[in-house]
Amino acid sequence: MAAGGDHGSPDSYRSPLASRYASPEMCFVFSDRYKFRTWRQLWLWLAEAEQTLGLPITDEQIQEMKSNLENIDFKMAAEEEKRLRHDVMAHVHTFGHCCPKAAGIIHLGATSCYVGDNTDLIILRNALDLLLPKLARVISRLADFAKERASLPTLGFTHFQPAQLTTVGKRCCLWIQDLCMDLQNLKRVRDDLRFRGVKGTTGTQASFLQLFEGDDHKVEQLDKMVTEKAGFKRAFIITGQTYTRKVDIEVLSVLASLGASVHKICTDIRLLANLKEMEEPFEKQQIGSSAMPYKRNPMRSERCCSLARHLMTLVMDPLQTASVQWFERTLDDSANRRICLAEAFLTADTILNTLQNISEGLVVYPKVIERRIRQELPFMATENIIMAMVKAGGSRQDCHEKIRVLSQQAASVVKQEGGDNDLIERIQVDAYFSPIHSQLDHLLDPSSFTGRASQQVQRFLEEEVYPLLKPYESVMKVKAELCL
């Protein structure tokens, strides 16, 4: 049975990233139509530049190519590739079939990587351009969430054990800070992308030097003109047959890092959902379990974690691919890159769409948070109580021993009897502590235990987050809708 299948058929496997999760716009960027249309555009740009620099290419040939950029006979191309065992030459023939007058000058002087690699770089750039505003929107939604809850005390956790208090907004800023680093890295790697350009079979530009009869300047002009037509500021000066596969490492490393950030955020949300302090959106008709109707599973956060793990592992592909590119190139890269580049971007696209949807509907339960604080705060307040007693004339050592005994009794009630923490009640009825009984409410005010959390939130948002989001103001209103 021949390899390949009808990918629109229910009898043929289709990647869930495309069929179930990723956005239509990201799927289109990695589609065959987008790819092969870009090949034709690159052939047109090459012909236009070659004509401008004096090669015998007519206006009629150029116009014929322009008129057929979208006229792609995919069936013919597939048949040609089956016959020739070469995808680029299959599309040269297919393009030439609908451009008979231009057929002889299509791909003039070029090698397969002229269309293959340059198209990949265009796709990487455009895919990054799709991700950047999506990530900015996630940051914006979380920034709104953090600002609104900047002063809401909550129990902090280290080692997932109760620690000092923080605020809900401050905790959210930990998430935002990681995503801001990801946004900066995505922008950097996007701006650092260079075009492969017009380089020939081993990167020496020998074929173009021959076409222009040894004119170095025209060869350099050709490279520059096509690079500018493709919208790049610069091209690699040095290439082998391909652009260095280190570029793929750079791009997928940034995406993998984004995956790590999203995994951490969504894990926190899942843990908070278990504590009943916070939940992701839950639709009115949504079913959490087929057997347990009360369940409210954090399905979206779980999906993000599941896909983020996949995204983090994909960076190993370009690392290994770059390491086995012998001399000017081997074909070890080809099949692998067809999979890992598309999957990385479709996965990143999915987790950003999902995280935006989550961040637009996060639900906080202040009463649950308050109750958990009441359970733990008495123990945390013991040092403040000791200091207040010393100020009232008591002995630190005597007070410490009193607190120690009462704390152990209260802990026994919590752990052995399943009761509430009654340390404060014990202190309130103990005559030894009568000098500070009137101060206990103040000493137990949760806001006095959150330090500068709310001020940190305000400063972080104003100095770091809002300036970073400013270039994306025009796209901030787009909502994230999930079908599944």
Rank of each mutant, 00 (worst) to 15 (best):
K264A: 09
D349W: 02
R37Q: 15
W45L: 05
T350D: 10
N421P: 10
F95Q: 06
A335I: 01
K233W: 10
L55Q: 08
Y432Q: 10
V315I: 08
R426C: 00
M476F: 15
F379C: 04
C173L: 05
R141W: 11
R14G: 12
N353R: 11
A410D: 14
D445L: 14
L468S: 13
E148G: 09
E220I: 15
E213G: 10
H86T: 00
H437K: 11
F208V: 10
L482G: 12
T267K: 00
D215Y: 14
R374C: 04
S23N: 10
I358E: 01
V219D: 00
F236R: 06
V262R: 01
A230C: 05
K284H: 03
F433T: 07
C483L: 12
M225G: 05
A392H: 08
P298T: 08
K82Y: 08
F28H: 12
L258Q: 11
K147F: 07
Y294C: 01
L44Q: 15
E481P: 13
D117Y: 03
G109T: 08
D430Y: 04
L443M: 05
S67V: 07
S474L: 14
G104Q: 09
G116S: 10
E220C: 08
V138N: 08
M316T: 12
Q161E: 06
M225K: 04
C172I: 09
T321V: 08
R300V: 15
E383R: 03
L258H: 04
L311M: 11
K218S: 07
D332P: 03
D192T: 15
K66R: 04
R245M: 01
S301L: 08
I237V: 12
S412M: 06
L193M: 15
G288C: 03
D441A: 06
L482A: 14
E228N: 00
L222I: 03
K147N: 15
Q161H: 02
P100E: 10
L108C: 13
I358K: 04
Y432V: 12
K75E: 13
L183K: 08
M387L: 10
S15R: 15
R149K: 09
I139W: 00
V457K: 02
S454Q: 09
S448Q: 15
V88Q: 11
M225Q: 10
I386C: 10
R396G: 06
K75R: 00
S151L: 09
S323C: 15
E283F: 14
P318Q: 01
I176K: 05
A3E: 11
S289I: 05
G393I: 09
K229C: 12
T239R: 00
A150V: 08
F95N: 05
W326A: 05
Q458W: 14
S412T: 15
D87M: 04
Q63M: 12
H437V: 02
D333A: 01
R296M: 15
D317R: 00
K229M: 06
D59N: 07
I238S: 05
Q375V: 08
N126Y: 14
V368E: 02
Q205W: 03
K134T: 12
T330K: 01
E70W: 05
S434D: 10
L484N: 08
V88L: 08
Y243K: 00
H217L: 06
A344G: 07
A143L: 12
K276Q: 03
I57T: 04
H7T: 10
L193C: 11
I269D: 01
A348M: 12
A47T: 10
L311G: 02
S447P: 15
H217P: 06
N336E: 02
T119N: 00
I72M: 15
R300S: 15
S454N: 05
N68K: 03
D6E: 13
K75T: 09
A256C: 03
L211T: 10
L319I: 06
Y466N: 14
M387H: 09
E277T: 01
A49H: 07
L271H: 11
E250K: 10
Q285L: 05
K367V: 03
E280C: 08
Q456A: 11
A410G: 06
E80N: 06
C266T: 14
S454Y: 08
M26A: 06
I385N: 09
K199P: 00
C173W: 03
H91T: 05
G116I: 12
Q455C: 09
I436T: 08
T244Y: 01
L174T: 12
P446H: 13
F195T: 09
M26T: 09
E343A: 03
R296K: 06
D178I: 05
I287P: 00
W45I: 13
C173E: 04
V315T: 14
A77W: 04
E481M: 14
R14T: 13
T354E: 09
K276I: 03
I57M: 06
E280P: 05
V88T: 09
L183S: 13
G109E: 02
K66D: 02
